[in-house]
Amino acid sequence: MKEFFLTGNLIDTVPQVSTVWSKRDLWETIKVRWSVGRMNYKVKPGIYAIGQPSEDAPVFVTGNFKLSFDHVRRALAGMSAWLLILDTKGINVWCAAGKGTFSTKELVRQIELTNLVQIVKHRKVIVPQLGAVGVSAHEVKNSTGFSVIYGPIRAEDISGFMKAGMKATTAMRAVTFSTWDRLKLIPVELGYGKKYLILIPAIFIILSGLNRGGYSVDLAYKDGLRSVFNLFVAYLTGCAITPVLLPWVPFRRFSLKGFLVGMIATIILAWFRLLGSTLLEIISWFLMIGSVSSFLAMNFTGTTTFTSLSGVQKEMKTALPLQIGMASTGVITWIVSKFILL
């Protein structure tokens, strides 16, 4: 099957790749950012040609997540190079390296499978620095004779790296997490709870009809919609607002950051008398919004570029029981508030 981003074949079998994104590449990128088909956005592993590479041309290694592939080939515009794609099951380099698919074994396998020794005269492969989580440079050298040179973290720095004689500056070696980086991740974060986005609001709407006199459909509609709105606010503060404002929200623990932002949102809602009609219901929403926002913000640790396993485990040990305790107390208080006018 001929892929649309290929422009031809070199030395019979090596497909040649375009360095320009088509409208279709861009549209697919947008879809993937919004989690559409994210788990099946792959290119075929193996060797590709950029421009008219000779046997002296550099070899760049990346994973087979098409978004990674696209960024690397775009960054190689104007160059002639080889692109060696590892089978990372459609996952980006860093995550795949952590999971063991972007690995020493897979790199060695692709070097052998593509017969790289016949394609290039030199014995160097340029691996993105974050791939080092899964690749052991000295083991690759021992198995294949190829030296691993760790390139820059970001594909856009490849050109600067090559001009400097395959040297990465300190800035190219440092992982960053800019506001724009975090904004790009929000759509994925918002998709986190998609399994529950209908179920939980439905339960709240149904329960909202409960009152001392029995059940009221009218109340289910009126209080139910307000409840769903409150839940949505908690979802937004945990999944979007806290992540975007991350460096400016005080505390190191993500659970505390999320709790604080949730509390501020709750106070604003209370100010506009949107939380509830009774004191008990208002208290219940403080507990529910606070815990939900705190939990969701804590989950953002997995998306960041600087949290450690030991740190997250330490944070969760105290945060998770508190979140569960607060959420369940909140739900019970909320149900009780339907029957007691306090």
């Binding site: 952590g98 690749v135 000295h138 450690s308």
Partner: peptide, 18 residues
């Protein structure tokens, strides 16, 4: 992983609550 002398040790893993 990349220390040829095995001078570094760290319990590596995902720093991810989920």
């Amino acid at each position: 992983k990349n220390c040829p002398e095995s001078a570094i040790s760290v319990r590596s893993g995902v720093g991810c609550a989920a």
